[in-house]
């Protein structure tokens, strides 16, 4: 597989003419219609918009979880459109971290095993167990590392997911409504952790949210409506 080393002056994400359509037997739905934007390294960008505007689809395409109908996506300077499934998987393991709204932990693995999973999948060397312990410690779950997801509360599960997302110190972190399933106290706790860890690890953060208060803390807000960018504005830095 041909890989491209990240160019220091290239943006973390570059999107050109990104289009996604779904064709059903009765009609064709255009979810995204020719998006163009760059995300500089280390930026915290919030993608907003009403339901059905194409936010999650955009996130999925940026992460190489799905193929666009047309257009180009460069992650860390590397074109991901047209890569094979396995190449995409390898790229995700190397460059991306994920936090999902519904945590998405593997139910049959303990908290620690879930955190270790990206390291195992990418064949990371060194001492991944130590890193996993540190991360669990930093999200306040050192004592619960042997618990299965079902034995953890929603907030705890999302904190494990955060630790997992940072396990390989990815240059880009994608988060889809990370506080959407949590009550306000837990949501706040998780958000603070996310932002702190993001700051410490110096990652580019792409966050999909409905929450305007959360979006207000982003460096930049991209608002989608009917598959097009209607607003692209810079905001205050989150620190």
């Amino acid at each position: 597989m041909a890989t491209t080393e990240a160019l220091p002056d290239s943006p973390a994400i570059r999107v050109r003419g990104l289009t996604k359509s779904i064709t059903t037997p009765s009609h064709r739905v255009d979810i995204l219609r020719g998006l163009d934007f760059d995300v500089p390294r280390g930026q915290f960008i919030a993608i907003m918009g009403p339901s059905g505007s194409g936010k999650s689809t955009l996130l999925g395409l940026l992460a190489g979880l799905d193929n666009p109908t047309a257009g180009s996506i460069l992650l860390d300077g590397e074109e991901i459109v047209g890569l094979s499934e396995d190449s995409l998987a390898l790229l995700r393991g190397r460059k991306l971290g994920f936090v999902f709204q519904s945590y998405q932990l593997i139910p049959t693995l303990t908290a620690e095993e879930n955190v270790l999973l990206p390291a195992e999948l990418s064949g990371a060397t060194g001492n991944p167990e130590r890193r996993a312990k540190e991360l669990l410690d930093s999200v306040g779950l050192a004592e619960r590392r042997d618990h299965y997801p079902v034995q953890l509360s929603g907030g705890e599960q999302q904190r494990v997911a955060l630790a997992r997302a940072f396990m390989l110190a990815p240059p880009i972190l994608m988060a889809d409504e990370p506080t959407g399933n949590l009550d306000s106290t837990n949501g706040q706790h998780v958000l603070e952790l996310l932002l702190t860890m993001n700051r410490q690890e110096k990652t580019t953060l792409v966050l999909v949210t409905h929450d305007t208060q959360l979006a207000a803390r982003a460096d930049r807000r991209l608002i989608l409506r009917d598959g097009v960018i209607v607003t692209d504005e810079l905001g205050s830095t989150h620190d």
Partner: peptide, 16 residues
């Protein structure tokens, strides 16, 4: 499905 999709999202290949 979810577990499989997560592993794939985290960089796991189909063969894994």
């Amino acid at each position: 499905l979810d577990s499989i999709a997560i592993i794939k999202a985290l960089g796991g290949r189909s063969s894994h």
